[in-house]
Amino acid sequence: METLILMILGIVVAPVLGGLVSGIDRRVTARLQSRFGPPILQPFYDVAKLFGKVKVINNFWQVFCAWVYLIAAALSVGLLFAQSDLLLIFFVQAIGAVFLVMGGLASPSPFSQIGAQRELIQVLTYEPLIILVFASIFMVTGSFRIDEILNYDQPLLAKLPLMFIVLGYALTIKLRKSPFDFSTSHHAHQEIVKGVLTDYSGPYLGIIEIAHWYETIFILGICALFWHTSLVGVVVLLATTYFAEILIDNTMARMTWRWMLKYVWSVGLAMSFVNLIWLHAG
């Protein structure tokens, strides 16, 4: 019962938090560019407006894929709040990722097609890293279950500092921040028109935006596990991490997917190996 309440709480609270994070993100970005920036609630206005627009579609499978993407993202956050299994949550999240790509491929528009292919490469890049992060958490705590992990008595960050950086790469890709924002991009950035989202419009774009908020919370939730022992620690860790993301977004140029695949895999795998060998040695 408690699990169910936590799950529903997660599903209700996450989009609100995710929207706020997105709003703060835009605001801070604007300040970094010496602009004033939109109101914090701007993402909510955007999505509300999108829901008020006329529905136009190009292939009805897009509607289907958009909904499944949203529900899978919501479910993964629900499971995260319900303290389920890390790997399971990640695989549920992957349902969403797959359907987003399928929706993109459903449209014959070349922009959407290229965007979907690039999105797949982004998935390819971050997925092994996240699984390795989970495996390393298992090696420290002896479990993939979040409830068991929360019982561990010291911050994981102390044991897995490099894995946190590896997770940071995944976070950057997942949040669609430069230099990794080439399947589609957020705010006013443009790449191959709007990449995988090109042919989604109106309410369906709104659905995808909400799903993206869920995903933001999902990945920030994983980050929070690295300092689960204190609430202050969580807040400091998340604030620092997210600010670093914004800083990276504003200082980096967009790169190519080839570069991303080579760079992130080599650096990510190398760091994982080093950190896991530390664990074995320690």
Partner: peptide
């Protein structure tokens, strides 16, 4: 209009490249 000097994003204006997203 998009530059820091005028900063239309204050009003929620975003410059998009796709008519399907535009108002």
């Amino acid at each position: 209009c998009l530059t820091p000097m005028y900063d239309v994003e204050r009003f929620g204006v975003v410059n998009v490249g796709n008519p399907k997203h535009a108002d």
